[in-house]
Design a protein around this nucleic acid. Structure first.
Length: 584
DNA sequence: GTTAGGG
DNA sequence: CCCTAAC
């Protein structure tokens, strides 16, 4: 909100502060483009569903996973089609024998122009929305959770993550590796775990949500990383869990790379990281065969091959007692995933960091050809889950968030933002939908960082070992560059007025005075804007670019700049003279 | 946490 | 708008 007070300071005349509309929150915090982040979870959730169902009827198969299965399952969903291939990842490093797994491969065989159209630009989604069950019906249901430690706060689905097990007998491994080594007891443990009414579910409250927002906002500026534990969803059958990125930096870089590959200021981007997202381009695409080897397949001319190795899913945060078994932990994660998100899978297409919304454009038109570099392409998984919770979204719809829920193209930043939004909504709306046995932490607790509050009387340390971090800090860490929001004339005017009154350098006060309600304008933003304003004011109008700032405002900028510069000089002189006067 | 300044 | 050093 802009102050409406008139001022009279120095040689500046009284200025009526303009009233600017309540500014939308930053994309990082509250810009509410709905839809989106549920899909990966949804997929997993339904997988989990079936997993659980099967578990009820196949206890006897525990511990009898097939070790070798090489059949391929192909799931087609019109165009683009999603192919599911079995991939043998070798032998699992731990004492588990893993059946065959399946990897997801997206194969775009025809241009999107053939896709059905819709008013809301969601033609692609109609074909891309792989209903989880559709997929599962063909893929099978076995998904396993494998904890993988790495430095990044992300829960990722990579390679094996999207792998699902061949339909059939091998449910067993989903409850594999109990702490005592006995699969049967593990299963029992798991059930005990989920039957244990004593384990509290702490629903996230709206109150905590607010707190979380504040914290999140605060943390957006601090993207430092801490080592965390991530959980990789992998096929129980996949032999060796493909190593995740060893440190957070890689993840971070990869994220940034995926979202804004075209940005020159993305200084360090590991090519390998890039490839982790999309492998293969040109006429040759790298496809993993059933032996885990990479084979190069020849694509038909004018055919673009995509091989999606991984999708990122939102982070989870929960606690379980240290007495819980590994198997129950896995189940807990799976259930958390399951309950977390519902809805259809939407696929977003990113091209050079920008989401591609127009489903009617051809790949060719978009510059996607068989001989181009697909390294700047990315895919995102989204859901329409957020539609269910309009109330928490309604507020502060920014000018820039006009994209419909059904957008197919979607930037990762939006995705992550939506995760935030979703979680906010989730806090309010879905208190009942979380598995009762899982301690889903409130945002407040999340904010407590690593200091986890034990659900039961167990040590924090032990808990910290099994907590999947759902740390907003890390979400921010992967959050992308904020969307550009040019200052409006009224904002510029408010800034000028405030600086005229307060002087440059007191940006916190400027912020409080003129942009208190504009959460997306930080003191640094104001400082930066002032910098550009003074620069703009100092150059001839012909050299000015972008949205033109009214000359009268620039005049005021210049005047204020000069005034405060002189003021500074005078003060400095005064200060220099001060000791002299004392001495005299 | 805020500010300044380079990128 | 980002990043970071300095305070």
């Amino acid at each position: 909100m802009v102050s409406k007070t008139s001022i009279c300071y120095g040689h500046f005349d009284g200025i009526q502060f303009p009233v600017i509309p309540k500014a939308p929150r930053s994309l990082r915090t509250n810009v509410s483009e709905k839809s989106s982040e549920g899909s990966a979870f949804e997929l997993l959730a339904d997988v989990a569903d079936r997993l659980l169902q099967e578990s009820e009827g196949s206890i006897s198969s525990v511990g009898h996973e097939p070790k070798e299965q090489n059949s391929n399952t192909v799931v087609k969903c019109e165009e683009p089609e999603v192919k599911v291939k079995h991939v043998d990842k070798g032998s699992f490093a731990e004492s588990e024998s893993m059946p065959e797994c399946i990897s997801l491969k997206l194969n775009l065989n025809s241009p999107p122009k053939d896709l059905p159209e819709s008013d809301n630009d969601s033609g692609l989604e109609h074909v891309c929305n792989v209903k989880t069950l559709d997929l599962l019906g063909k893929v099978g249901s076995n998904v396993n959770l494998v904890a993988v430690e790495k430095e990044s706060g992300e829960l990722t689905i990579r390679d094996s993550c999207l792998d699902t097990c061949v339909p059939s007998k091998s449910f067993s491994s989903s409850v594999d590796t109990p702490s005592n080594g006995d699969p049967a007891s593990c299963l029992q443990d798991t059930r005990d775990m989920f039957d244990n009414r004593g384990t509290k579910l702490r629903a996230i409250t709206s109150k905590s949500r607010d707190k979380y927002r504040r914290i999140r906002k605060m943390l957006t500026r601090y993207r430092k990383v801490t080592s965390t534990k991530d959980y990789e969803l992998s096929n129980p059958t996949s032999g060796r869990v493909k190593p995740l990125y060893q440190n957070r930096k890689h993840i971070y870089k990869r994220e940034r790379c995926q979202v804004d590959a075209a940005s020159k200021r993305r200084k360090v981007v590991h090519q390998s990281s890039k490839n982790a997202y999309i492998q293969g381009a040109c006429n040759e695409s790298i496809v993993k065969n059933s032996n885990g080897d990479k084979t190069h397949t020849r694509a038909a001319p004018n055919e673009v091959k995509f091989s999606i190795n991984s999708f990122k899913v939102p982070e989870l945060y929960f606690e379980i007692p240290e007495i819980a078994t590994i198997g129950s932990l896995k189940r807990t994660v799976m259930n958390a995933l399951k309950d977390k998100l519902r809805g259809e899978l939407h696929v977003g297409i990113l091209l050079k960091g920008r989401k591609v919304r127009d489903n009617n454009r051809t790949l060719q038109e978009m510059g996607i050809s068989h001989n181009c570099d697909l390294g700047t392409m990315g895919f995102t998984l989204e859901t329409s889950l957020l539609e269910a919770s309009p109330s928490a979204i309604q507020q502060e719809q920014p000018l820039s968030s006009a994209s419909p829920i059904t957008d197919v193209g979607y930037s990762s930043s939006s995705l992550y933002h939506d995760l935030d939004t979703y979680l906010d909504n989730y806090v309010d709306k879905n208190q009942e939908s979380i598995p009762k046995k899982t301690e889903v932490l409130t945002q407040e607790k999340v904010a407590d960082s690593k200091a986890l509050v034990p659900v039961t009387a167990v040590t924090t340390k032990a808990l910290s070992d099994i907590v999947v971090n759902y740390n907003p800090k890390k979400k921010c860490e992967v959050s992308q560059r904020r969307i550009r929001r040019p200052f409006s004339k009224s904002e510029v005017e408010a800034l000028v007025e405030a600086v005229e009154f307060l002087g440059p350098g007191r940006w916190r006060e400027v912020k409080n005075r003129a942009f208190d309600d504009a959460d997306h304008r930080t003191c640094v933003d104001l400082k930066d804007k002032w910098k550009t304003l003074t620069h703009t004011a100092s150059i001839p109008p012909q050299q000015r670019r972008g949205e033109l700032v009214p000359q009268h405002l620039l005049d005021r900028v210049q005047a204020a700049h000069e005034y405060w510069s002189n003021y500074q000089i005078k003060h400095d002189l005064k200060r220099q003279c001060e000791p002299l006067r004392i001495l005299m």
